[in-house]
Simulated scan of single mutants.
Amino acid sequence: MRVFIHTGEVSGDLQGSFLVEGLKRQASERGLAIEISAMGGQRMAAAGATLIGDTVPVSSIGLFEALPHAAAALKLQRRAKQHLTETPPDVVVLIDYMGPNVGIGKFIRRHYPTTPIAYFIAPQLWVWAMMPGDTDKILSIADRVLAIFPGEAKYYRDRGGQVTWVGHPLLDKFADYSPVEAKRDARQQLAIAADATVITLLPASRPQELTYVVPIIFTAAQQLQAQLPQLQFLVPLARDTFREPLEQAMQAYGLKGQVVAQEDQLLAIAAADLAITKSGTANLEIALMDVPQVVMYRLNRITAWVAEFLLKFSADYVSPVNLVNMESIVPEFVQWDATPDAISQVALNLLNDPDQRQKMLEGYKTMRQQLGTVGVCDRTANEILDLAISKANNLTEYSA
C-alpha cells in the first residue's frame, strides 16, 4: 500500500512523524506491505517516510511573510505533483498547512478522483475562518476529517463532513510522563542545579519569528533578569539553523543561560519552572509536561492590520491549550497586547505565586481530559488504512 503525506511547519512534521510510526505499526499488524512518501521534514524522514521535499524551511504565517518563500514553495508543489503523477498513491493524508494542502487536494481530485483523501488535523476554521468558502474547500477534497479536538470534530460534522474524532497525538507521547522525575533528570543532563530558577524561552520555529517574536520575548526575559538576577534561561532550538541568531540575541540582551540543541527541546521544557513561548503546538507539549507558561504572538504590523481591519479577523483564543475547552487556562498576549512589560509581569506573578501556578496546573488537568485517550496514532493509522482498503474494495466491485 502506498501512502502519501503532505504537510509543512515544524508542528506538522512532528505530528507527521507520529503518524508514520503508527501507520508502519498498524500495517505490520495487518500483514500489509506499506510505502510512505511525504512532503514534510526531517522528523518524518527519521520515522521512516521517504522525503520527497522538505517543506519546513518555507513555512510562514501571513501574506507578506510568505512572499520571500513563494518561489521555493511553488517548486515544492511542482515536485509533489510530479511524484504523485509518477507514483500514484492508494491514499493521501493532508496535515494542517491549509493553502498548499488545498492545492494538493484539488490536484488529486482532478487527476485521481477515486484516490481517498484523509485530512488529519484540519485547519482551525472552527476557531477563525478568515476567508468565506474556506470550510467548503476543505470538505470538497476530504473524504474523511480525522479531528484532534472535540470542537474541530463538531464544526466539520455540522457542516456535512465525514468526521472521526481520534484525539490528540501528543497524548501518546506523554502517556507515562512523570513531571517530578522528568524535571530532576532534565536538570542533571543539562547540568543545572536542583534549586535553580529556570525559565525556558521558545520564541521561533519560523524565520519571521526571529524578527517579530524574539525581540519581545527576549526583552521580557531581560526585564525578569533585572528583578531576579539568579534566573537561568534555556532556549531550545526548533530548527538547527536558528542557533547562531539565537545565540547572538542572547548575548545582545545579556541573558544568562544557554541555547539547547533541537533534540533536547523536551529536556529544556522539563527542566523549567516556567516557559515563555510563542503560540503553537509546543503550548500543548508544555501543558502535558505540567510546566506553567505565558503565551504570545506577533506578526508583521501590516499583516496584522490587514487581518484585523480589512478581513475582520478575530479569535477568542490562539493557544491550543485554551482552544480545547475554549477557556482561558494560560495567559495570551497577541499582537498589540504582546508587550515585554505585560509578559514579564505575568511571568513574575507565576513564579512568585504558588496559587496561580496550581490553578494553571488544574486547568491543564481539565484540558487533558478533553483530548481523548491514549492510542491516538494507532486509531488514526487504522482510519487511514481502512479508508484506502474500503475505496479499493469499492473499485473492485465496480469493475466486476
Rank of each mutant, 00 (worst) to 15 (best):
T200E: 07
D378E: 14
A175G: 02
R243Q: 12
R78H: 13
P169K: 11
L19W: 03
R379Y: 05
L267F: 00
P245G: 03
L202A: 08
L351P: 05
K183D: 01
P132I: 10
A204I: 00
F333Y: 14
E244H: 11
I121K: 03
F18H: 13
S328G: 12
N349I: 09
P292S: 07
A271P: 00
K173S: 10
T55N: 08
I192C: 01
I52C: 11
A221N: 05
V213H: 00
K256L: 09
S17N: 09
L246S: 00
E65M: 04
S17G: 12
E244C: 06
R2W: 07
F309M: 13
Q42A: 13
Y155C: 01
I36F: 05
F174W: 06
A400C: 12
A221I: 02
G280E: 01
M39K: 11
K183E: 04
A220P: 02
R243Y: 07
A226Y: 06
D176Q: 12
R298I: 07
A45N: 03
V163D: 00
L74R: 14
A220C: 03
V291D: 01
N300C: 09
D316H: 15
D13W: 03
P207A: 12
A38P: 07
G167I: 06
A49G: 10
K173V: 11
D134Q: 15
Q356Y: 08
T373D: 11
G105S: 11
G99W: 08
I52T: 11
P89H: 08
S279C: 08
P236S: 05
R187L: 03
A307S: 13
T164W: 08
I384H: 01
A342E: 07
K75C: 13
L310V: 15
A226P: 07
A221M: 04
G167L: 04
L228R: 12
L361K: 15
K137R: 15
E181R: 15
L371K: 04
Y253Q: 10
T50N: 15
N349V: 09
Q188K: 09
L170G: 01
Q370V: 06
S140M: 10
L310N: 13
T241E: 15
V346Y: 04
M296N: 05
A122G: 03
Q248A: 14
I286E: 05
A315S: 14
Q248S: 13
A66G: 10
P113K: 12
S399A: 15
K81S: 14
L395D: 14
D195K: 09
